[in-house]
């Protein structure tokens, strides 16, 4: 029986909730049952956002048990590091490389971006760092990071789902004026992810 689980983590405003919906809807396109779970509300105000996606039979909890996720999709390196322990042994961590400094950092707290990348390299045996700024520039819209990241993870083979199913899910669920842009964003991410894991 096919199944997968993916934790998406980042900060408010990055479109993580929509990304998790796209992932779940794609799984449903291929006939899998799906669940997601996110913390919303206060989190929208620049706080940490986490979304769980589980697909396949025999899922009860909408939240992924620690140490069992197949994929950790970080939208920011520190937010990936924060949740690394949710990955199953052999799981893949795909994360955007640009650090986002919180207001507390401006007020004097620490944020050592290099130390966090070093930690990820050391403790995530399967790690894909996505040059998100470069891909965003290519796609031309800052709002598309979520679809780019889903594309990059899919291209790296993180999910047991065909690329066409993602494209179908985008066409079926996105508002018409955003479909084209998101199809392009997905394909851009997908090509990046695929290239990164091709020897």
């Amino acid at each position: 029986m096919r199944s997968f689980s993916c934790l998406l983590s980042g900060v408010g405003g990055q479109g993580i909730v929509l990304a998790s919906k796209l992932l779940a809807q794609t799984a449903m396109e291929t006939g899998m049952p799906a669940m997601t779970c996110e913390t919303i509300g206060m989190a929208q105000r620049g706080g940490c956002v986490v979304s769980h996606v589980r697909a396949g039979e025999n899922c009860f909890s909408p939240m992924i048990p620690q140490g069992t996720a197949d994929v950790l999709l970080g939208f920011e390196p520190a937010e990936a590091a924060r949740h690394l322990r949710i990955l199953a042994p052999g799981g893949i961590c795909v994360t955007a490389s640009r650090a986002i400094r919180p207001v507390t950092a401006s007020l004097g707290a620490e944020y050592d971006g290099d130390a966090i990348l070093e930690y990820l390299r050391l403790h995530a045996p399967r790690l894909l760092l996505v040059e998100d700024q470069q891909l965003l520039a290519k796609v031309g819209s800052p709002k598309c990071l979520n679809t780019i990241m889903i594309g990059a993870a899919a291209g790296a083979g993180a999910f047991d789902l065909p690329a066409e199913s993602f494209l179908d899910a985008i066409k079926a669920n996105f508002p018409s004026k955003y479909i084209e842009m998101n199809l392009f964003a997905f394909q851009t991410g997908y090509a990046y992810g695929k290239k990164a894991v091709t020897p």
Partner: peptide
């Protein structure tokens, strides 16, 4: 898993 280095605190603002 080894604990990560000091992570940024992101209180809602």
């Amino acid at each position: 898993t080894a604990p990560p280095p000091s992570l940024p605190i992101r209180p809602p603002v």
